[in-house]
Nucleic acid binder design. Structure first.
Length: 201
DNA sequence: AAGTGGATTGGCT
DNA sequence: GCCAATCCACTTG
């Protein structure tokens, strides 16, 4: 499989547009063990200071959120309980916004992904969640701050996306009015999206 | 220097 | 459905 890495300019898109533009594109991770990749089928937008659910809400600038204040297209990884979550920094420097990658449809290195995700029985469980896809691709805090238009971790040209659906984000019940913003995007009907099937219509 | 809680997952009831 | 696992950044003393 040959991958065509994205142009750095792609990530300058406004966050909500980037979150939708990424659906159907590929996320590729190269390691010594081999290369694993998947089509992006679910994302969430986190719109910086205005967004109560964002880590950068109110312009909070700390060691953790620092990379979001810089140039777009870099990786913002953070740890959640036992898992690592991957975000792509979006918009221009000074705008601390990002797009959380929530689910992938595996398309290369599937054997490697299955090995890393020992316990996942079905193909649709390999990367159907933000913590799962990090595990499947071997993404960790080592990747924090890396540019996402060149190896070892990058976004690449993908396939034609299906219809894109939008709905409220997941796991942010304590985020006030931001709780209901329809800033989660996914490919309608794709079985590799996270969570239950109820909302995937 | 210690306590708190979270953009999750998977296993058990 | 509910709950424990288990790490680290951030807050507070």
């Amino acid at each position: 499989m040959e991958w065509k890495a994205a142009e750095p300019e792609l990530f300058r898109l406004p966050t909500l547009e980037l979150a939708q533009a990424l659906i159907g594109m590929a996320l590729v991770k190269e390691t010594q063990e081999g290369t694993a990749a998947g089509w992006i089928v679910e994302t969430e937008a986190y719109c910086g200071p205005e967004d109560r659910a964002a880590h950068s809400f109110g312009g909070r600038r700390t060691a953790r959120t620092e990379v979001m204040f810089g140039e777009p297209g870099h990786a913002y990884a953070h740890v959640m309980h036992t898992h690592c979550l991957l975000n792509i920094v979006s918009a221009d420097a000074g705008c601390p916004q990002g797009v959380l990658i929530r689910a992938l449809e595996p398309c290369a290195g599937i054997e490697l992904m299955e090995k890393r995700r020992a316990g996942a029985k079905k193909l649709t469980e390999l990367a159907s969640g933000p913590g799962k896809l990090s595990r499947a691709l071997g993404i960790s805090m080592e990747d924090y701050g890396r540019p996402l238009w060149m190896p070892p971790l990058y976004v690449a040209a993908g396939r034609e996306p299906g219809e894109i659906a939008a709905g409220p984000r997941i796991g942010i019940e304590n985020s006030g009015e931001a709780r209901d913003y329809p800033w989660r995007f996914w490919e309608r009907g794709n079985p590799h999206v996270s969570g239950r099937k109820s909302w995937n219509r």
